[in-house]
Design a protein around this nucleic acid. Structure first.
Lengths: 352, 352
DNA sequence: GTGAAAGCGCTAACAT
DNA sequence: ATGTTAGCGCTTTCAC
């Protein structure tokens, strides 16, 4: 519709004037249409789009105390693991009328804190995806804003993570069934929460089945890390390998093949994440698929619920949601079935 | 650093009161420190961080007329091609004190327009990366906000794109030197600007060297598209193939190998983009590398310049602004050397 | 059902 | 060098 061709955007007063009403009526028409007479409403609406009127967000934010935007901080946009997460969060919030600020920490904890602080000023809430910062900093941030953490669990900060257990159980069971009795774990970053978690369950699963597990690494969680890992695997005298993630697995696979080692013939290989590339290499990678879109949606929903609660929502539908989110500060239920990881068997695992 | 432990954030008046000055002095201290007495400044700064004061962004935006944030719209966050772009834009703007809104259109032109409209309300400017919408819509958007388009050129909208020519020239020359005389182009989406551009230069390069070029497709610009393409390549009786992008090339490679066709022995293969995966497969893909980070930085710098120009205008802001924006639309120099594509020779090309 | 008035928190003339 | 004043554009009591 006809925006004023000069650059100035129409204000609520202009609309009011054109419609012959007061600014308050225009505001009501837009925000609480039921409070205004049908005929008046029509006139207002008409004038509004005649002028191409768009409420000024800054003014709204100032008076309402919320910006209708949230911040999302990830360690590395380029990491295929995070893309679906970003996508999921963005799609969820867009749908609810929120815009999403995105920032990339380059895997650096200090940058991460700085970015979070900066976003607090502009967004109503924050989602920290796989945060690298210390628990202390995390808590301090959480005290300053509404925040949800994904892929890392905490008792003090609302958080959500996938359930790695089923996938790992399935993988260990699978490898065991194939006859492997001595395996390696290609560890990721030492201080990484998810690395610790993956290792723990892996150890438990192997122990339970009498599989000997040797831990190698830590390796950079990249293709190059797997490259290096491959040579150490060969020296470790194992028949199967669990990698910290697919990138490492893929790197190892590549190097193994280059060295003439048959996969899965001589060495079986299991990845983690199921990034798109996992199914595109040859042989396609057996891996533990993680439900990132579900994690993303859950995190987003959690944040939205918290925002609603903060805004003083009367105990409506949101009350329950946010309750569960806050109790998420207590042992969050990673038991939700849609958050379960699962083994995807492709072609890098076979009989020993 | 004691933030008030209750939820309310300190205002400028609180700081002023604590420091025993007026709000304006606080504002000055923060925005034009040189205008205020050193001793006063000290007191103000002190009170400010005593209270953990952070200026309210919404209030600033309202009075200054700018939000210090920009919007970035991409077709698909998950596409490895776009990740470095997003990263580049975000890093650039973060550095300048801007925050970046990100949205993903899912390759849909309608969504794209809607998202852009939504962002106009919240951001000072917009970067459209590889926009799918029509030129008309593009122009209409550009009239409403400060905007820069990347990976697509336009005379009427400020835009920036890499220079595909050198890379393609090198590729054709390389393939020609290897003895190939009949090649195929695996086309991407028919109406895609970059597809048309790539094809055009490819045709020219081949024609100039007496290489016969058959165009296949269009294919989905994904791994799966290349899969399908491979079979058609085999039927086309060519010895080398240029793919619309790496994903297609990789898909084709995979399928070719599955069918027992030797690459580069029987068929040579050249990709486009040089996504990370290109160097990770085996054999590693020969491909035309595109300078996405440079494109991203350039686009960002362009937008920032336009924003600055708009803000710095002496009189009637709007009229001149759009004029200058349009003038920025005059032939953008894709000749900048850092925007040049270049051939990366790996192992999917060899003598015929 | 509608208007008038009072700010939200900040910056920027304009005094002083 | 600092304080006073007047809004930025909107929402929201509070009257009518």
């Amino acid at each position: 519709m006809g925006a004023p061709d000069d650059g100035s955007r129409a204000t609520i007063r202009a609309v009011a004037a054109l419609a012959g009403v007061s600014p308050s009526t225009v505001s009501r028409t837009l925000n609480n249409p039921e409070l205004v007479n049908a005929e008046t409403r029509r006139r207002v609406l008409d004038s509004a789009d005649r002028l191409g009127y768009q409420p000024n967000r800054a003014a709204q934010s100032l008076v309402l105390g919320r910006t209708m935007s949230v911040g999302l901080i990830v360690p590395d946009i380029g990491n295929p693991f995070f893309a679906p997460f970003i996508k999921g969060v963005e799609a969820y919030f867009r749908d609810k009328g929120y815009a999403v600020f995105l920032a990339d920490t380059d895997e650096d904890a200090v940058t991460e804190v700085a970015l979070a602080e900066a976003m607090i000023e502009r967004a109503d809430g924050l989602i920290l995806c796989s945060p690298r910062m210390s628990g202390t900093r995390l808590r301090s941030l959480a005290a300053k804003t509404t925040m949800v953490m994904a892929n890392r669990l905490s008792r003090t900060v609302p958080s959500i993570s996938m359930d790695v257990r089923p996938g790992i159980e399935q993988a260990v069971s699978h490898v065991h069934a194939l006859g492997h009795r001595r395996c390696a774990f290609l560890g990721g970053p030492r201080d990484s929460w998810s690395n610790r978690q993956r290792r723990r369950f892996l150890e438990a699963g192997c122990a339970a089945r009498g599989i000997e597990l040797v831990e190698l690494g830590p390796y950079e969680p990249r293709f190059s890390g797997g490259f290096r890992a491959a040579d150490e695997v060969l020296a470790a005298n194992v028949t199967a390998v669990f990698a910290y993630n697919d990138l490492v697995a893929l790197g190892a696979l590549s190097r193994l093949q280059a060295r003439g080692v048959a996969v899965p013939g001589e060495i079986g290989l299991v990845g983690f994440d199921d990034i798109p590339m996992a199914s595109m290499v040859s042989p396609p990678l057996t891996t533990i698929a993680v439900p990132i879109p579900a994690v993303a949606r859950t995190a987003a929903a959690m944040l939205l619920a918290l925002l609603g609660k903060e805004a003083g929502l009367p105990s409506g539908p949101a009350a329950l949601t946010s309750a569960s989110a806050v109790s998420a500060a207590a042992p969050p239920p990673p038991s939700a079935p849609e958050l379960a990881t699962r083994l995807v068997i492709r072609s890098t695992t076979g009989p020993t």
